[in-house]
């Protein structure tokens, strides 16, 4: 869908309007375990269920050791002695929702700048949709906006932003 979407930029000949299709095979869910992220998780799993898509749930540990961009599983991350209460919890919530809804989901932890890591991961995973809560704050010192804003700016992939209410 994304590919077709960006290929078909022709707007001067609307008479050539064709039938439209949507195909979502991979969804990237960013979670920090916050309320809006939990809501985002439910939406991501709902979309995945409807479209039979695979989900990758990612938590970016801002406080993690510098620039180790190799994604780890929750278990590997905890074994390394890291402390990731809310984020790892968020990933476990994603895991449980996925299980309950028969959705295929892998959970990964990455250490680094939040928005940057999400964008980098999206480039590698090339999802058809990114789902994120709107409350996650960017770790960028000068940043005025949220992680969602930064992700929206940094990728051409459709982004679904979910609030905490």
């Amino acid at each position: 869908m994304t590919e077709n979407l960006y290929k078909s930029m022709e707007i001067s000949k609307p008479t050539e309007a064709q039938e439209l299709f949507i195909n979502i095979k991979k969804i990237l869910l960013a979670t920090d375990g916050s309320k809006s992220a939990i809501n985002a998780t439910k939406h991501a799993i709902g979309w995945a269920r409807t479209f039979k898509a695979n989900v990758r749930a990612i938590f970016v540990d801002l406080g993690g050791e510098t620039a180790n961009q190799t994604p780890k599983t929750i278990e590997q991350y905890l074994e390394s002695g890291a402390n990731c209460k809310n984020g790892c919890n968020g990933l476990l919530v994603a895991r449980e929702y996925a299980k309950e809804n028969s959705v295929s989901c892998e959970e990964v932890v990455v250490a680094g700048n939040v928005a940057r890591s999400i964008i980098d991961n999206a480039e590698k995973f090339s999802p058809d949709l990114i789902v994120i809560g709107n409350s996650e704050k960017s770790g960028i010192r000068r940043s005025l906006g949220s992680v969602a804003d930064a992700v929206m700016k940094g990728t051409d992939i459709p982004v679904l932003v979910v609030s905490d209410s």
């Binding site: 979407l5 939406h43 709107n134 906006g145 949220s146 969602a148 804003d149 929206m152 990728t155 051409d156 992939i157 459709p158 982004v159 679904l160 932003v161 979910v162 609030s163 209410s165």
Partner: peptide
């Protein structure tokens, strides 16, 4: 995105 309680899908 900041102010909506309804989910927002942003297409870039």
């Amino acid at each position: 995105v900041k102010n909506s309680s309804i989910p927002v899908l942003v297409i870039k």
